Computed example of a mutant assay.
Amino acid sequence: MNSETLKIRTKTCSISIGKLISTLPFNVLNKNDSNQLVRCSSSVGAKYRAACRAKSTADFLNKPKIVEEELGESMFFLELLEEFNPDLKVDISNNWKEGNELLSIMVSSIIRIGKNEQNRKTS
C-alpha cells in the first residue's frame, strides 16, 4: 500500500469516527470518551502525514510509532463507547476494524523500516 492511499485511509478513518461521534447521545461518559477519541483519531492522519515529510531517519522511524500509539488509543475509546452505546455496536465495530487494519499496516511498516535501518547500518 502506498503513502497516498494511507493518507486517504487515515483521513477517511478520522472523518468516519467524527461522524460516529456526532450520533452519540449526550451524557458524561460519551462526552469524555468522545473528546479523547476525537483527539487521538484525528491525530492518526496528521501524524501519518508528518511521517511522510520526515526530515531525518530518526524522525522517519519515530513518527509511525506515534501513529501506532494514536491508533491504539482510538481503538480503546471505541471499545469504551461500544460498551456504553450498544445500539451503535455495528458502526463502532466497523470503525474499530478499520483502526485495527491501519494498526496492522503501521506495525508492519515500523518493523520493515527498522529492518531496513539495521541492514543499512551493517552494510
Score class of each variant (00 low, 15 high):
N2S: 09
S3V: 13
S3K: 15
I8H: 12
R9Y: 01
R9K: 15
T10D: 01
K11P: 00
T12E: 15
T12G: 08
T12F: 07
C13T: 04
S14D: 03
G18T: 05
K19D: 14
K19F: 07
K19V: 14
L20N: 02
I21W: 03
S22Y: 08
F26Q: 13
F26H: 14
V28P: 00
V28Y: 12
K31R: 15
N32P: 02
D33C: 12
S34P: 10
N35H: 11
Q36R: 12
L37W: 03
L37C: 05
V38K: 13
S41P: 01
S41T: 08
A46F: 06
K47W: 07
K47D: 12
A50K: 15
C52A: 09
R53G: 04
R53L: 10
S56D: 07
T57R: 14
T57N: 13
F60L: 10
K63F: 04
P64L: 05
K65V: 03
K65D: 00
I66Y: 10
I66T: 11
V67D: 03
V67R: 03
V67H: 01
L71H: 00
L71S: 00
G72T: 03
S74M: 06
L78V: 02
E79N: 13
L80W: 04
L80T: 06
L81E: 00
N85T: 04
N85S: 08
D87C: 06
L88H: 09
K89Y: 03
D91Q: 15
I92N: 04
S93E: 11
N94Q: 11
N94M: 09
W96G: 04
E98Y: 00
E98V: 08
N100W: 07
N100F: 08
L103D: 01
L103A: 06
L103Y: 12
V107H: 03
V107K: 09
V107I: 15
S108M: 09
S109A: 14
I111A: 11
R112M: 10
I113R: 11
G114E: 13
G114L: 11
N116M: 10
N116Y: 00
E117H: 12
Q118E: 15
Q118R: 11
Q118P: 01
N119M: 13
R120Q: 14
T122R: 11
S123M: 09
